[in-house]
Design a protein around this nucleic acid. Sequence first.
DNA 1: CTCTAATCGAGACGGTACGTCGCGTCTTACG
DNA 2: CGTAAGACGCGACGTACCGTCTCGATTAGAG
Lengths: 184, 184, 184, 184
Amino acid sequence: MTDARILRSRAGLRQALLEMLESRPFEQVTIRDLAAASGVGYTTFFRHYPSKEALLGDVAVREVGQLHEMTLPVYDAQDSAAACLALCAYVDQHRSVWTALLSGAPGYVREEMLRLGREAVAVRSRSWLPQDLGVVLGVAVIVELLGWWLQQPNPPPAAQIAEILDRVVISPAQTPPGAAGPTP
Amino acid sequence: MTDARILRSRAGLRQALLEMLESRPFEQVTIRDLAAASGVGYTTFFRHYPSKEALLGDVAVREVGQLHEMTLPVYDAQDSAAACLALCAYVDQHRSVWTALLSGAPGYVREEMLRLGREAVAVRSRSWLPQDLGVVLGVAVIVELLGWWLQQPNPPPAAQIAEILDRVVISPAQTPPGAAGPTP
Amino acid sequence: MTDARILRSRAGLRQALLEMLESRPFEQVTIRDLAAASGVGYTTFFRHYPSKEALLGDVAVREVGQLHEMTLPVYDAQDSAAACLALCAYVDQHRSVWTALLSGAPGYVREEMLRLGREAVAVRSRSWLPQDLGVVLGVAVIVELLGWWLQQPNPPPAAQIAEILDRVVISPAQTPPGAAGPTP
Amino acid sequence: MTDARILRSRAGLRQALLEMLESRPFEQVTIRDLAAASGVGYTTFFRHYPSKEALLGDVAVREVGQLHEMTLPVYDAQDSAAACLALCAYVDQHRSVWTALLSGAPGYVREEMLRLGREAVAVRSRSWLPQDLGVVLGVAVIVELLGWWLQQPNPPPAAQIAEILDRVVISPAQTPPGAAGPTP
DNA sequence: CTCTAATCGAGACGGTACGTCGCGTCTTACG
DNA sequence: CGTAAGACGCGACGTACCGTCTCGATTAGAG
């Protein structure tokens, strides 16, 4: 199960997928392309993943999972600003991967974030919004913001994006309808 | 150009597309299905649209365009709350169409909204956010919010959604970074 | 039926067909091409001929018929050499038409010749061969010989072709199995 | 290259083509029909032949080639009568194949015979006719004669056809213009 | 260090949808 | 009010990928 060849093949396929996503959207990536680019036989692809969606899922779960683990502890510490910063800093450090994911397959990233977000929010909801809606909107804004950021010719520093994120997602969510403004 | 048969064929195709989007995502809709469902010959489809994306584009442009025309005047009147309400009310009145569009092809709706939004904002930007980013985030939130709304088993009234929209999109956009909170 | 427009349309179509046959085989000629080339509406074509085969049939019947009428009397006069010469001379005088027909649609020419040949032979069989076979072989040789002739870069004179025709078709047909040789 | 599956698929397609040619002309045979009839996937057809013409070519080359190999040695032995007999006997033994080929696609058989005939005649021309013309006429007569033979309700014996062939093709070709008759 | 079993490549195959082409019919807008 | 223009349904074409399947050939890791 931990055969070296298996690990090598899968890593190669994941790598090949990320490289392809930099140049074209996921739907236009072909299993045959992936196999060829990663030096793996076409048939062999299916020995590892039942479909190209499964491969993308694998990649997305790994990357989004890491991002989540990096951000959540800080968020739990009630410091939303620091959490946003941690998130943006992490993405900044893995620019190429996240550029590929967000430009080539934003829907899948969103999907995976939603999954994790829903799990997480079940115990930490602090918003006046319907719980699920909060997650949906938060994830949408994160994905769009990061996507926008990563494709800017002269991207603003992570700190600035983090602040936008904090102001646009966290504050509205935590300000009750009757209040005069967000509580920092 | 105004041949009755042409109008009939196109209307049929648009209708068929909307019906299909209610039951499955756009990628799984087949041109053959569309042709069959609308009683139009398969080849005839291509006499009207070069691809199913073009058909979807036609539908999206029409619907999003109407929504936009309905909302913008109110928004220009500086009354963001009324604009949000107008938008939600319009969608509410065209529930089935918007359910289809948002559940089956949210990406295309987003795309078209972005297009119109970018045109519109060029002359009326009132946000502290980078202009394009404001549109991107606003559109994302609108699409997600409407999508969430329309698939709720017991959907809240339009007024409530409109208020959420106003609080989540308009307020953060208009509250300058230094301010203590949104200005009502 | 004798409306001038009708005659003009049909003549134009026949002419267009002959011109097309000079550059490509009949199967590759399109009704749309014919209509366009002869300045006739596509739909109009069908008012005159039910199919392109019918048009070709019309042309073939006319041309082969004329050839036949030209040749037969001489043949009936028992002078096979003169008949062959008449045939070749006629074709020589209508080179372009026959080149087109024989290079573009030899099968149809053969068909029509067979039809006329079978009619004619019913009353004048002078061959030891089974009657129908004689016609079949004779027609085949005529068609091939003329086809060969018309596509030679430096075509031999008609007289020479006529002699070949006489020697190859008429003589073997008229020499009974037991005879020592053809009777001139 | 010698994969058993390949051989099976091709043999099936050739067989299916021959069966279809018995009931309708080649132009009316559809690749889809061939694939279905031979139990081969439609797409698979193109993995073996670029077009139905290529498949017919394969069949024609094989059959005409065998006929040629069977006939030529005898012909080279200067015994034209025996060669004709060999040819007719061979066709007689492969009646169904040749009936199919000659009734459904005579043009292609003719084409292939021409090719082989031209190769062969280059070294053994014994005719007073222009070399190429001799082949053209000879092939035409052979094709027509065999075609006629195979579709007779009560076909004459091969020997009789062979004699006709000899008298109609070989004799005229070998009798010089000035001679009084064929030399037996 | 060897042997056995898992992994791999190669590629034939049956499918499904695509988008194109030409046919022949039928409708319609226009002169 | 007829007629050309052309929209239409149809069916075959040839292409691109998909996912399945059988082959051997290699190669890792357990014994």
